[in-house]
């Protein structure tokens, strides 16, 4: 039995501990915002927050999660208020097919915590999620915009 928290709720899993978090979220909890893209931690479509840090859930066995806090895209907006990154994504109309975007947003949200005022070089070296539609150009603009929104809101919290 592994106990941990998903989006603030306590959960207990007594199945096969090798089950990747991604499939526990999708198949057991029906939280389908976290996407399956590659299964080898390469594309980042499955990015969630593990104790606040971006993690690729397709390669994260549930057995490693005891006592940890998981947050998914479904928890990013609070009280109906979209997060700065979500707002910036809407402002710049980033998504095309949209399949990778939940993962992108989760990755960027964590990235901005440690890089509240990122340079293009920071973006290039620290973000690697795959967007098959090639929305990177708008994404870059939106990342800078989100950083500005967060600074305005008073820090990178």
């Amino acid at each position: 039995m592994v106990k941990f928290k998903v989006n603030g709720q306590s959960v207990a899993f007594d199945g096969d501990g090798s089950t990747p978090l991604l499939w526990y979220l999708r198949d057991n909890l029906k939280l389908t915002g976290t996407k399956f893209g590659c299964g080898i931690g390469s594309c980042g479509a499955c990015t969630v927050h593990l104790d606040g840090k971006a993690a690729r859930s397709c390669s994260l066995p549930v057995s490693a999660l005891a006592g940890r806090q998981i947050n998914t895209i479904e928890s990013l907006a609070t009280d109906g208020q979209l997060s700065p990154v979500q707002q910036a994504w809407i402002e710049h109309d980033v998504p095309q097919c949209g399949y990778c975007q939940a993962g992108q947003i989760m990755a960027v949200t964590d990235f901005l915590k440690s890089n509240p005022n990122p340079s293009d070089a920071d973006i290039d070296t620290k973000l690697s999620n795959l967007c098959r539609c090639g929305t990177y150009t708008r994404m870059r603009t939106a990342i800078h915009h989100a950083a500005k929104l967060q600074r305005k809101a008073g820090g990178a919290a």
Binding site: G33, K35, I73, A77, L82, Q86, W89, I90, Q101, A102
Partner: peptide, 21 residues
């Protein structure tokens, strides 16, 4: 015009075949 389903996408709503139960 911005994409009509932007908000659903950025909040992770089930829109895709993979998400259908």
């Amino acid at each position: 015009r911005k994409s009509a389903q932007l908000e659903k996408i950025v909040t992770g709503q089930p829109l895709y075949g993979m998400d259908i139960d």
